[in-house]
């Protein structure tokens, strides 16, 4: 049986992880490769690296980082943040990234999704959607959630699926950072309407929240950052408890 995936997310700035993580065994808290290795050993199913600076100067740094991660880590990983062009994606995939995620650039230039899928295959193109409720409507936001658009979240997700996205990374800006649970209703709407996998992000604070996002939310995968970084939930323990709750897990 295909298992549900648990995905820690690492924020990268200038090739280093920010929000230092809280593992006693860590020699260098800012070393993304070392953190990736710890998560991988702990049973993470995939990793996401999000470049939060994403400037032109950092492009080379990010490619170097991808090369180093890919040479040492034997689970799949996605790289995102500021990706705007075919050449950038080509550099990242050739360095060993398994997937890339695009967000604001896809909203600005929807055709980018078609071109990326046609060039590299849908399986490595993730479209990240930041969604926030405005007057009762779920609307797509860009630029780290700071700019609102007129795009309705479900409609946009359908559109990028049709354009060739292989997966959706759905972040609820309303839930992100709250540790009050994932946006299960919205996640479930997307997951049921789409034929591609949906990764839920934003709001995971307890094991029960993860149970709910896989049951009520019908998510294919769940992503979280700080609760893993600060060891508030241990990945292995989380997966054991999810399995005990009859959610298929790779143990």
């Amino acid at each position: 049986m295909l298992t549900k995936r648990i995905i820690p997310c690492l924020d990268i700035k200038n090739g280093r992880t920010v929000k230092g993580i809280n593992f006693v065994s860590l020699v260098d808290a800012g070393d993304p490769v070392e953190q990736a290795a710890i998560y991988s050993a702990a049973g993470a199913d995939e990793l996401v690296f999000l470049d939060i600076t994403a400037t032109l100067e950092n492009r080379k740094t990010l490619v170097e980082l991808v090369r180093e991660v890919a040479s040492k880590i034997n689970i799949p990983f996605t790289v995102g943040g500021g990706i705007t062009s075919i050449s950038h994606v080509s550099d990242l995939l050739n360095a060993g990234a398994d997937k890339v995620s695009v967000n604001s650039a896809a909203v600005r230039e929807p055709d980018l999704v078609d071109r990326l899928a046609a060039t590299f295959g849908s399986q490595c193109i993730v479209v990240a959607i930041d969604s926030k409720q405005v007057d009762g409507q779920d609307l797509v936001h860009t630029h780290g959630g700071s700019r609102s658009t007129n795009l309705e979240t479900l409609g946009w997700a359908r559109e990028v699926e049709n354009r060739g996205a292989g997966e959706i990374l759905l972040t609820s800006m309303d839930h992100d950072g709250t540790k009050s649970g994932f946006a299960n209703t919205l996640t479930s709407r997307l997951s049921q309407a789409l034929t591609i996998p949906v990764i839920a992000s934003g709001g995971g604070g307890t094991t029960d929240h993860f149970v709910e996002v896989f049951t009520h939310g019908k998510a294919d995968a769940a992503l979280a950052a700080s609760i893993f970084h600060f060891n508030e939930i241990e990945i292995k323990e989380l997966k054991d408890q999810l399995q005990a709750a009859n959610i298929p897990m790779r143990i």
Partner: peptide, 16 residues
């Protein structure tokens, strides 16, 4: 086959 409830395509992830 696409559109079978509970099954996304591609088959993506860890399986036995």
């Amino acid at each position: 086959e696409k559109g079978i409830e509970g099954y996304k395509v591609p088959h993506m992830g860890w399986n036995i």
